[in-house]
Computed example of a mutant assay.
Amino acid sequence: MEQLQIGVSGWQIGLVLVWLGLIGGVSELARRFGYSSEITRKIVHIGAGHVILLAWWFMLPAWIGVAASVIFGAVALISYRWPILPGINSVGRRSWGTFFYAISIGVLMGWCWPQGYPYFGVVGILIMCWGDGLAALVGQRWGTHGYEIWSESKSIEGSLTMALTSAIVVLVVLGTIQGLSLQLLLVAIGVAIAATILEAVSKYGVDNLTVPIGSAATALALSQLLASG
Rank of each mutant, 00 (worst) to 15 (best):
F99P: 00
V51E: 05
V173N: 06
F58S: 05
G205V: 07
T196G: 13
V201Y: 13
T144K: 13
Y101L: 10
S202H: 00
A188E: 11
S79I: 03
P86G: 07
I213N: 03
W63E: 07
S104C: 11
W142M: 11
G14A: 09
V201G: 13
V66Q: 01
W111T: 03
L184I: 10
V107R: 02
M59R: 15
Y80E: 14
F99R: 05
Q183D: 15
I78K: 05
L160Q: 13
V91W: 04
V138C: 09
L220C: 04
E148H: 10
Q178K: 15
W96S: 08
L134H: 12
S37V: 08
T165Y: 03
N208E: 10
W96L: 14
T40M: 08
V206L: 12
W142F: 15
I127H: 02
S166C: 10
M128F: 03
T161C: 03
E157H: 11
T40D: 00
R93K: 08
A221C: 06
W82Y: 15
V187N: 09
E199W: 02
Y117D: 07
Y117C: 09
L15P: 15
L77P: 05
V70P: 01
V75P: 00
L171I: 09
A67G: 02
P114W: 13
I46R: 03
Y80D: 12
L222A: 07
A76F: 10
S9M: 13
G124W: 06
E157Q: 09
W11L: 11
F33T: 07
A200C: 11
V18P: 12
D132Q: 12
W11T: 04
A76N: 02
Q224G: 04
R41I: 01
V107T: 03
V66G: 06
G87Q: 13
I46Q: 03
I189C: 03
A167Y: 00
S155P: 01
V44M: 13
T210F: 12
S9F: 12
A48M: 05
F120V: 02
Y80V: 11
S104H: 06
G158R: 01
G34W: 01
I6P: 08
L134E: 10
S151D: 11
E28R: 07
Q183C: 12
G133T: 01
A200E: 10
L164W: 14
I177M: 15
K203V: 14
G190S: 08
A163Y: 01
Y80Q: 15
G10R: 12
A135Q: 06
G87D: 11
G34D: 01
A76S: 14
I84E: 01
V206K: 09
I46C: 04
R31D: 05
A195C: 08
I105C: 03
T144N: 15
I64E: 07
L220H: 04
W82R: 15
Q3M: 14
P118Y: 07
W19D: 05
I213H: 00
F99Q: 04
L182S: 14
G73S: 05
A62R: 06
I84V: 08
G25E: 07
